[in-house]
Amino acid sequence: MTGDTATATVAGTPVAARAAGAGAFRRKLPGRVVLLLVFGFLYLPIAVLVMLSFNDSGLPTAWSGFSTRWYSALLGNSDILHAAWNTLVVAIFATLVSTILGTLLALGMETRRRKSNGLEALAFAPMVIPDIVLAVALLTFFSRLGLTMGLHTIIVSHVVFDLAFVCSVVRARLKNFDFSIVEASRDLGASGWTTFWRVTFPVLLPSIVAGALLAFTLSVDEFIIAFFTAGAGRSSITLPMQIYSMIRFGITPEVNALATIVMGVSATALLISQWLNKEQVR
């Protein structure tokens, strides 16, 4: 930041501007190299996986031509289709419940007169508690109650962390929310209910959708908690559980295709979520 302002003041003459430009380039170079390396590290393994999913032989040894046969193989695999369906059911219900509860929690927390440390900790905890701890806690809880575990217990468990993330996204929006327009609406005679639906809700909507998309992605990708709360048997297996059992003992070409689809869906949802979040800041 300091460098930019200095450049701006010196850049009175063309010569000075050119010298400053060269200096800026030299100053920016290390940063660019670092970013290139780190982004390479983050994205190359994923890129390799995506490319491999279109490799005819399915093996990482050699490129044997472009093919979508591994994608067709997925469509013929009833285990995977079943797991994909379960994942969708879990993610949709968990997203619906957590979006409503998370939004209400955000509204409650941001309209309070005084910040409550207990409430802050409660809403923060699900985002930082190690998955394995929450997973065994829920397994213990459900089995103590004598519940038969299945998709419903996965949904209930996913809502725990999903709602915390929805809450944090919506709260971020509420922090920049001008509450005087709510008061204006009330002063003009609108009821609390009308004010909510006509004033507050439209302003919050993009962040609510962004939070919902984040919750959906988290739920689709979540493995550990689902694994512990799915109960015995294959009937309530989800996609990450299916992937885990497939990759446990080595690499299989079908997983490459499946992984590409799952990551494509996640990335799309996250891009839309991010775009909605950005739109509303303007």
Binding site: L105, G108, R112, L163
Partner: peptide, 21 residues
């Protein structure tokens, strides 16, 4: 009102996170 709004989320977290832990 704020407590009422927060109640369902708090109840969910209390039941399915605090109690299990």
């Amino acid at each position: 009102r704020p407590n009422l709004l927060a109640a369902p989320g708090v109840a969910w977290l209390a039941t399915f996170m605090v109690v299990p832990c």
